[in-house]
Design a protein around this nucleic acid. Structure first.
Lengths: 233, 233
DNA sequence: CAAACCAATCTGGTTAACCAATTCTTATTA
DNA sequence: TAATAAGAATTGGTTAACCAGATTGGTTTG
């Protein structure tokens, strides 16, 4: 067998090919929820790809909740019908990499919600965590240092305090890319950083006082520059 | 070497252990953005776990954008500082599985936004896709059949039309679990399904007429029962 | 002395062999 | 004949060997 090193993009295309073949198989064999998929070995032979490739494709579909593999037993169709299966695989295949605008737009949406939830649900421990992150940010800025990381950590502390694990996860997913792009595009300059201290303080106070509406308003103010930036790219 | 079959939970704990060890190493060695992590083989030896386990842990951190591995070269710290690295790993380790309430809460938040975006950005192709999904739903309901899948596909079509790939991805992530739980808890009964046809139609019309505010209102109506359900569990 | 070259080594990725739990078949027995 | 036990085959998961590109240190050469 010839060996070849593939770029991540080529690898992704192979994986997508396998996924669409799995979809075709499910349709052709009329597999329903709970039915068993052919074994990994069989699929790798049928599709003429390595078993590793098949496993990766299955794991991706498992991540999206479409398949469920059980050790020493087999891979099974999840409790989701053929219609949804086809539609979702179609979407997964066409999914494109997120652009910066999408990321920021989503971040703003999530944070305007998490800050409200945090204001109603925050525990004492949450307040302690947020205060720590807030102080770390202040120290960095007052010493004239870059504080993008500390900024984001304060926001992540809010997400955690929201008590919504799904939104918390989503914030974690988009945060690193946002940090990278921020530093790349120099979204935050020194002047904004100083203003940020007071803005963070205001947000923190609103959450502490359990005032969701005020917390949201303060967050909106904090995002004002970001808003404009996002919609002027 | 003794071989042992582990449950997914046990495996996850091993992975978290490795991740925290990687974090400790990064701190101890003061690794900065761009620095190279020790090789997978070295880590697996140092931590006394299999290389596969190390690879999985690295892939997880790569998913969250904290590491970046290059073939035949090494695994590198992403463009993110030590502070954010520590904070994010901490969060990732403590991340809990999403509960149903979190899922629904997030879905409502996302959809009230995607429907507005769809109303402003939808293309003709988007309208065609949505109309197809809408008709499929109607047919199923009118024939007295379960239509949870078709319902969700209509909503996914809206997410796609929003033109925001991040939100689209997030919708794809939470959708299958929602479908499963809906069918499990029988959230949608027949009566609701019939009402749903008109509600879907209203949403579709608002998007077609590019009226974001109306689209959001119609979506809110559509979610009314879901709202109550979510907050009464 | 610096630039170009080369081979040994190291790297993440890939493949193939192996493991043990499960499942299916078959033989045995009450 | 039906219930049961034994064993062979199949399965996803795991480990170890292998691959080829990338790196590195030393050597040669202009």
């Amino acid at each position: 067998m010839k060996l070849e090193i593939l770029t991540k993009n080529e690898n992704q295309e192979i994986q997508n090919g396998i996924i669409s073949k799995i979809r075709d198989l499910i349709n052709y064999k009329n597999l329903e929820p709970g039915d068993k998929l052919p074994s990994e070995r069989m699929l790798s032979e049928k599709f003429e790809v390595s078993r590793t490739n098949v496993r990766e494709a299955i794991q991706k579909l498992e991540f999206y909740g479409l398949l469920k593999s059980k050790p020493q037993s087999g891979t099974f169709i999840a409790d989701i019908g053929q219609v949804a299966m086809n539609g979702m695989i179609e979407d997964i295949l066409r999914l494109e990499d997120p652009d910066f605008k999408s990321l920021v737009e989503t971040r703003i949406l999530l944070e305007l919600k998490t800050v409200r939830l945090a204001a109603t649900r925050r525990t004492e421990q949450d307040l302690t965590n947020m205060k720590e992150a807030l102080d770390a940010y202040s120290v960095k800025v007052e010493n004239g240092m870059d504080a993008v990381q500390e900024d984001l950590l304060f926001h992540l502390a809010i997400a955690k305090a929201s008590g919504n694990s799904t939104m918390n996860t989503f914030m974690l997913i988009i945060t690193p890319e946002i940090i990278t792009k921020f530093e790349e595009y120099h979204v935050c300059d020194k002047g904004m950083a100083f203003k940020g201290i007071q803005e963070h303080q205001d947000i923190f106070e609103a959450i502490k006082n359990q005032d969701p509406q005020l917390a949201k308003e303060k967050m909106k103010i904090h995002f004002k520059a970001l808003y404009q930036y996002c919609y002027n790219i």
